[in-house]
């Protein structure tokens, strides 16, 4: 249960800048996810926090202690590897106890902690087996147990679910979150799966090209993305260019967009005159309204069960809508509207 404070961190490999100007603080017991596409620098950041890499610039503090140059074996962190990295020739018991033995924790305490951990992770029956005799989900739990038994100040996860099948992934995800909350662990979790990030995290940090796009709780990230990258990466969005024509009343902005004149209600002040705006496919209401209404022609329909995806054409541009009404077919013209608060102001157009 430690805090993490990262200040102006930079990581360069030769001429390649993997991370630039990363500053973020993680509170005690907080679950923060690093989310981004492959190559965005999320694993590099995790390696910097765990100590396997030394940053080019900047500092990392764990529990207010500067650990920027401390090697991993002396850091109060425990890492869960994507590949689990269980020692194949050691039994589950020896794998879980490995870290305690390195720390020369005495036998009786080791036994006690092992029992607790095996109970918590339902591994009691597996302790004398070898890793390759266990299923993927069980191996994952052993990896988790091996890290947790150290009672680390910070627990780090490197895409721990990517080797599991979809069904198992959901249950292990619930389990990781439960254990993290029960033990009040400070956790940093790397993933490229946005639904994993939204479901598990207290806060999500979206990385793109080595820079932070946004750090926010999942709800904020979804409802008020600050950049078009975040809007598109989390949940999908219709992104348009817009020109800010004025402020009609405090917090309400008039916009000129490719689908007509619109208004947006936002706490944010537009970053420039020409900005990007977005709206979620499911934010659209299929009713007329005095503001923000437009007519769309349906070009394609995909029935998904609980909802239907509609691909529509508005003034020559393609957009996507989600509706609960399955009775709309290609060729129809529909009247739509968007609440002003559902039209989200994004970054300035470069």
């Amino acid at each position: 249960m430690s805090t993490i404070d990262i200040d102006r961190l930079e990581m360069r490999f030769g001429n390649f800048t993997a991370l630039k100007d990363i500053s973020v603080s993680v509170k005690e017991g907080e679950f923060v996810t690093l989310l981004g596409p492959s190559g965005c620098g999320k694993t590099t950041l995790l390696k910097l926090i765990s100590g396997f890499l030394k940053p080019t610039n900047g500092t990392i503090k764990i529990a207010n202690e500067d650990v920027t140059l401390t090697p991993p074996e002396h850091r109060d962190t425990a890492l869960c590897f994507q590949s689990y990295a269980l020692f194949p020739h050691l039994t589950i018991k020896d794998n879980i106890e490995f870290g305690l033995k390195q720390k020369r924790v005495n036998g009786s305490e080791r036994k006690q902690r092992l029992q607790d951990m095996a109970g918590q992770l339902a591994l009691d029956a597996q302790l004398d087996k070898l890793p390759n005799q266990l299923s993927g989900g069980q191996q994952q739990r052993v990896a988790l147990g091996r890290a947790l038994i150290m009672r680390p100040g910070v627990i780090l996860f490197d895409e721990p679910l990517s080797n599991l099948d979809a069904k198992l992934r959901d249950s292990v995800r619930v389990e990781i979150r439960r254990i993290q909350q029960e033990n009040n662990l400070t956790a940093v979790y790397v993933t490229h799966d946005q639904s994993e990030a939204l479901a598990m995290s207290d806060r999500v940090m979206v990385l793109n090209g080595g820079v932070i796009e946004q750090v926010a709780p999942p709800e904020t990230l979804y409802n008020a993305p600050s950049t078009s990258f975040v809007a598109d990466f989390i949940g999908g969005a219709n992104i348009m260019n817009a020109e800010v024509t004025g402020e009609t009343e405090p917090g309400v902005w008039a916009l000129q967009t490719p689908i007509g004149e619109m208004v947006s209600k936002s706490d944010r002040t537009p970053a420039a005159k020409h900005i990007k705006v977005c709206w979620r496919p499911e934010a659209v209401k299929l009713v007329d309204s005095p503001v923000n209404s437009f007519t769309a022609r349906v070009t394609e329909r995909q029935f998904q069960g609980s909802y239907t995806d509609l691909f529509v054409d508005i003034g020559g541009n393609g957009y996507r809508l989600k509706t609960s009404d399955p009775g709309i077919y290609p060729g129809e013209n529909i009247n739509c509207s968007i609440e002003p608060s559902d039209l989200i102001l994004l970054e300035a157009i470069q």
Partner: peptide, 26 residues
């Protein structure tokens, strides 16, 4: 020899000799 085994041993506090024993030797 798998790098993740070496890293895992290191992360769990293993000294150089212990890392050799657990990650390299097998």
């Amino acid at each position: 020899v798998r790098q993740d085994h070496i890293d895992a041993a290191r992360d769990l506090g293993a000294t150089t000799i212990e890392r050799w024993k657990v990650a390299y030797m097998p």
